Simulated scan of single mutants.
Amino acid sequence: MHHGAPTATLPAPLDRSKPVVVAPMAGGPSSPALVAAATGAGHFAQLAGGYLSTDALRAQIDEVRSRGVGAFGVNLFVPNTHAIDPSAYERYWDALLADGAPHTAGVERPALREDDDEWGRKLELLLAERVPVVSFTFGLPEAGVFERLRAAGITSMQTVTSAAEAQQAERAGADVLVVQGAAAGGHSGVWAPHALPEELTLTALVQRVRAAIGLPIVAAGGVVRRAQVEELLAAGAGAVAVGTAVLRADEAGTSAVHRAALADPRFERTELTRAFTGRPARALVNRFVEAHRDAPSGYPAVHHMTRPLRAAAAAAGDASAVHLWAGEGWREARAGAVVDILAELTP
């Protein structure tokens, strides 16, 4: 136990960053332009490797580096299949059709697909490219990964959602823990299939993890105000990550339909839902979320199943059937240059 121990300091290159850093957001928002603008202003930021092909990720790394910015990181999804029974998969597709969901007309049920998001190829790319920081979410990488990163001079970060996950990550050899609370927008990093993150304030979770382990902590989840940043730093976080707070930034690659929804007063709350991907993720409550509260656990199969429907809805500007990821403080996310948004949040 480390009660009363001084807060472990962040290793290089995170120790040179301002205390507010930018969380990786897969699916578009974490554009090279966003990462370059944030790091150029002294805020550590990460590209989101999830869902990208290895070649597309390489191109994004090259683009960030071509802008000659500060230290950046790349986040990867660890393969942690929440396997789905084929009959449950078929039932969920039938439910989507029965619901009369838009954008299903003429779409064949996608084949059940459990892939690893090109995990091995992406990991080798990041090692070869000597990316300064590599972070992981959705689970713990297999034995040996943290040692390989350390040998390459790369700092590692592991997303955890509980003290138990934190202890496993420390034993596995992670350098830094990203402690993610339940208020976070988008996917929860919770490891266990069928589990939801505990409903606990981020400050309480940081204090609980700090008491259990000795690694430095980056706190993440629902942070949209400077007072929250100050509270988390006082609780023992070495830095605080923001995601939803920069979704409307000029440089973010957030889709037009997602941007508009974040500013639309018709959306009244967020909820953790499996409806879009089969993995718990916090989104603005729209018709799709409401219609599929009993969606099965099944990642990445459900993600692949609903992707053509979500892509069609986004292309049509239909916010009722798109995954509108948002943390609990989404109403305070504002438009503008990312450097201005981050400056407002930084003590």
Rank of each mutant, 00 (worst) to 15 (best):
H2F: 14
P6V: 08
A8V: 02
A8P: 15
L10M: 09
A12L: 12
P13I: 10
L14Q: 03
P19F: 02
V20R: 05
P29H: 07
S31K: 03
P32R: 11
P32K: 11
L34K: 10
A37Y: 01
A37C: 09
F44K: 02
A45M: 05
L47E: 07
A48R: 07
G49E: 00
G49L: 00
G49W: 03
G49S: 03
L52M: 12
A56F: 00
E63I: 00
R65S: 10
G70L: 13
G70Q: 09
V74R: 08
L76H: 07
V78A: 12
P79K: 04
N80D: 11
T81H: 12
I84Q: 12
D85W: 00
E90S: 15
R91V: 05
Y92V: 04
D94N: 07
A98C: 00
A101E: 05
A101T: 15
P102E: 00
V107C: 00
D116I: 10
D117A: 02
G120W: 00
G120E: 11
L125C: 01
A128T: 09
E129N: 01
V131E: 04
S135C: 02
F138Y: 15
F138P: 14
G139I: 04
G144H: 04
R148E: 02
L149E: 03
R150G: 10
A152E: 14
T155D: 09
S156Y: 04
S156Q: 00
E170F: 02
R171S: 12
A174W: 01
A174E: 05
A174C: 05
A174T: 12
D175S: 13
L177S: 09
V178L: 14
Q180P: 10
G185I: 13
G185S: 11
G185V: 12
H187K: 14
S188P: 10
S188Y: 04
G189S: 07
V190I: 13
E198H: 02
E199D: 15
T201Q: 05
L202H: 11
L202P: 10
L202I: 03
Q207K: 15
V209W: 06
R210F: 05
G214L: 09
G214I: 07
L215R: 15
I217G: 09
V218N: 08
A219Q: 06
A234R: 13
G236P: 13
A237L: 06
A239L: 01
A239G: 09
V246A: 02
L247Q: 11
D250C: 06
G253W: 09
A256D: 15
V257C: 02
R259T: 09
L262G: 07
L262I: 10
A263Q: 13
A263S: 15
R266D: 03
R266M: 01
L272V: 08
R274L: 12
T277N: 11
G278F: 03
P280S: 05
A281S: 14
A281K: 06
A281W: 08
R282N: 12
E290S: 15
R293K: 08
R293H: 07
P296H: 04
Y299N: 11
P308K: 09
L309A: 08
L309H: 08
L309P: 05
L309E: 10
A311P: 05
A312F: 03
A314M: 05
A319V: 00
W330C: 06
R331A: 13
R334T: 14
G336P: 10
A337S: 14
A343P: 10
L345P: 12
L345Q: 06
